[in-house]
Measured scan of single mutants.
Amino acid sequence: CHSECLGNCSQPDDPTKCVACRNFYLDGRCVETCPPPYYHFQDWRCVNFSFCQDLHHKCKNSRRQGCHQYVIHNNKCIPECPSGYTMNSSNLLCTPCLGPCPKVCHLLEGEKTIDSVTSAQELRGCTVINGSLIINIRGGNNLAAELEANLGLIEEISGYLKIRRSYALVSLSFFRKLRLIRGETLEIGNYSFYALDNQNLRQLWDWSKHNLTITQGKLFFHYNPKLCLSEIHKMEEVSGTKGRQERNDIALKTNGDQASCENELLKFSYIRTSFDKILLRWEPYWPPDFRDLLGFMLFYKEAPYQNVTEFDGQDACGSNSWTVVDIDPPLRSNDPKSQNHPGWLMRGLKPWTQYAIFVKTLVTFSDERRTYGAKSDIIYVQTDATNPSVPLDPISVSNSSSQIILKWKPPSDPNGNITHYLVFWERQAEDSELFELDYCLKGLKLPSRTWSPPFESEDSQKHNQSEYEDSAGECCSCPKTDSQILKELEESSFRKTFEDYLHNVVFVPRKT
């Protein structure tokens, strides 16, 4: 048989008469490798580009789960590009990614509803959504962080984005990388972005840091009482949809009607710091009717980097990364020049730590249904340095008659930039024990000054392991946590139920 035959053949030295091919099969003959313009397919066939392209389009058009959109890589027609490569849609070739590779997620039936953290986790790592997304989240724990972890990498949506009755959302900033909504599939009414009845939605994105392009379709905003109209108009300008909307697409009466839409800028007039305090004062603000001013709200939190936005980490279910302080308005003076500047002394802060701070007014709604208010920009203030805590785990070892090696770990709280350490030492008198000992005694162990690591005695271990207080009263049991108490109650309830079950099964009433 021919060298490319495997198993047997019907005619000697003829690659077209093989029972099976050793390498690849091409047009009725066995070959060692697939010549151009053919590609290896499933490690035994040679196919042309049209064959591989037909497989790709067949799966793409069917949208069946589990099928493969075949691509070409290293002269092979394979189910998908290997790690580190992405497909070129024009020629199906796998090309190296520039940075992290995109991950295209194809949605069944063309859309997916995100109504819980669990459903959001199914899209973790996706960068391109081939379909439409509907966000409908009523509640949950730590929602802002969970949504950002699972949806934060999405850069492109081919269909539309719909935010509907998501009472738990305060902001859409968890879509931190969303840059493009194509609108290839539109919501009824030709809408590519749809926001309806979101009672706590206050911000779409921080438009000073976020760009969003909507290729096709219109915007729809109705019944978002805490979303200011200025935020919607800003989205029109940034996304390129200005002029597409009709009169009733953006409701003037049901958007922002319960919001404090600040239209003035508060400026800080005085800032002073110490290692654990920050004193702030800002310019006074009074609405047209000074009785509408209820006070100020001061927001602050630790910020290692200057990239904080107002609604980071917030949701309507209680999660809030900001510390909020309510401040009463100052006494009002008739003389504008003698107006008191409101302020606040922030206490209990960490030394040498940068804080993000902003302040906003708290006002009631005027009778004319106009909203007044003022808010400052987010500023960054760093507390002063102070003395560091003591170095940890000092170790001293003498390696000769004239040297001592000293080692330690950095302090747990540096409280500033540590530039150097101060080492103090003092000579001590020799131990009298060394002169009084009889060095001729056998088995004498000389006193040693070398360091030995501390260890816990058996008594201390027994005390720590004991669940009861000892007789001397030195140790006591740790208080039980809520989960331990709940577990004990469940076990007790189970024992009672099981005992009742045994009584009912074992003891049967005697027939009379």
Rank of each mutant, 00 (worst) to 15 (best):
K103N: 05
I114Y: 05
S119D: 13
G125P: 01
T127H: 03
V128H: 14
N130K: 05
G131Q: 01
G131A: 04
S132P: 02
L133I: 02
N136S: 06
N136A: 05
R138D: 03
G139T: 03
E148V: 03
L151N: 00
I154T: 06
I154V: 12
E156D: 09
S158F: 10
L161R: 00
K162Y: 11
I163C: 07
S166D: 03
S171T: 08
F175I: 13
R176F: 03
K177R: 10
K177H: 06
L178R: 00
L178S: 00
R179F: 09
I188R: 14
N200F: 10
L204T: 09
W205H: 07
W205R: 02
I214N: 02
G217S: 03
F221G: 03
H222Y: 03
K226S: 07
L227G: 00
L229K: 10
E236F: 13
E236M: 06
G243A: 06
E246N: 08
R247K: 09
N248E: 11
N255G: 04
G256D: 03
Q258M: 05
E262A: 05
K267I: 14
K267S: 11
D289M: 03
F290V: 01
L293I: 03
L298V: 07
Y300I: 12
K301F: 04
Y305V: 14
F311V: 09
D315L: 05
C317E: 15
S319P: 08
D328A: 10
P330G: 05
L331F: 05
S333A: 04
S338A: 09
H341I: 10
P342E: 06
K350I: 03
W352G: 01
T353S: 12
I357G: 01
I357R: 00
F358M: 05
V359M: 04
T361Q: 14
D367R: 04
T371C: 07
A374Q: 03
D377G: 05
V381I: 13
Q382S: 15
T383Y: 00
P388V: 15
V390L: 06
D393G: 03
S396P: 15
S398C: 13
Q403L: 08
K407P: 00
K409Q: 07
K409A: 12
P410S: 15
P411L: 02
